[in-house]
Amino acid sequence: MRRSLLAARRALPDETLRRSARALAERALDLPELADAGSVAAYVSIGSEPGTRDLLDALRGRGVRVLLPVLLPDNDLDWAAYEGPASLAAAARAGKMTLLEPAGPRLGPDAVTGADAVLLPGLAVDGRGMRLGRGGGSYDRVLARLERADAHPALVVLLYDEEVVARVPEEPHDHPVHAVVTPSGVRRLRP
């Protein structure tokens, strides 16, 4: 399933990627969970992922504290504040894709527990709110950390319309998300 979803993303024309990123930002900014947030943990999209950069800048422009992940050697995530496009640095990891990460001071893996909303990357989500990620486990750790801290931010996945599917494979450690934002709108999910 991951291979076919990634292949479909790679086949998207650049103009579709740009249009989708603008639409995702518009739809996501209308979410009450983001409109009322003081702090949002997000990520910088890369390649043909649903675009987040317009959204990151819009949130920051609203005065929201945006936290971005820094991939650690064990695939866990540290966090740092987003201070605008110039604050991002390319981070190449052996055997992994090159990521854009915030260059500022690290806040520690637990910084995510103070976020009002967490934007999660994914490849697909189903009606139960189960999310299919890339398989590295980084965001599974984030979700487990939130649960251990008894933190309850809104969990939102950004996807393309065709990535909302009937069912995704599920593991015992998986946590459902609350909403999915696609270029055509928002779907509330019922875990």
Rank of each mutant, 00 (worst) to 15 (best):
G104M: 08
L24E: 01
E15L: 06
L6A: 08
V64F: 10
P153K: 08
G61H: 08
G51V: 07
L99H: 08
S184F: 07
R128I: 03
S4W: 15
L155N: 04
G136F: 05
M1W: 10
G185T: 15
T98N: 00
E83Q: 09
A149L: 12
V157R: 08
D116T: 03
R22M: 12
G38D: 13
L159Y: 08
L31Y: 06
R19Y: 04
P121I: 09
L56F: 10
R190W: 11
R106I: 07
V180A: 00
L159M: 13
P13D: 14
L123E: 00
A28P: 07
L77Q: 07
Y160R: 00
G133E: 11
V44W: 04
T98W: 06
P172A: 09
A124W: 05
A117Y: 05
L6H: 09
A144D: 11
H173R: 14
A42S: 12
M97T: 15
L59F: 02
A103D: 14
L189N: 01
A111H: 01
H173E: 11
P109W: 01
A21M: 02
T52Q: 02
E33Y: 01
S87V: 09
T182P: 04
G135E: 08
L159E: 06
P169T: 10
V70A: 08
P102H: 02
A37I: 14
P50L: 11
A80G: 11
A28C: 04
R167K: 15
L34D: 05
G61M: 08
Y160K: 09
A35L: 12
V66R: 08
G127S: 12
L67Y: 02
A35R: 14
H175C: 12
S4L: 14
R106S: 14
R65C: 05
D126N: 13
E147A: 15
P109Y: 05
D174P: 12
E171N: 10
R148S: 13
V165G: 01
A92G: 12
G122K: 04
D54V: 13
A25P: 04
A8P: 07
L77T: 03
V157M: 04
L67C: 11
A25C: 15
A21P: 03
G95Q: 06
R190Y: 14
R128L: 11
P176L: 12
G185M: 13
G122H: 05
G61T: 12
T16R: 15
A23C: 09
L71G: 04
A166Q: 10
R19A: 15
A25R: 01
D140H: 11
K96Y: 14
P50V: 00
L31F: 03
A103F: 03
E26K: 10
R22H: 15
H178R: 13
D30S: 15
A23S: 14
R62I: 10
L189K: 01
G136D: 06
V177H: 06
L120E: 06
L132W: 07
P102Q: 14
D57P: 03
S39L: 14
R93A: 02
L159C: 12
M1K: 12
D161F: 06
S48R: 06
V142H: 06
S138P: 06
L34Y: 00
G63Y: 10
A92E: 12
R106Q: 13
R60Y: 14
R22I: 13
W79D: 00
G114H: 04
E163N: 07
A124D: 07
P153G: 01
A117Q: 02
L143C: 04
R9V: 01
L159H: 04
L68P: 01
M1L: 13
N75D: 12
S48I: 09
D14Y: 01
D30K: 14
R93C: 03
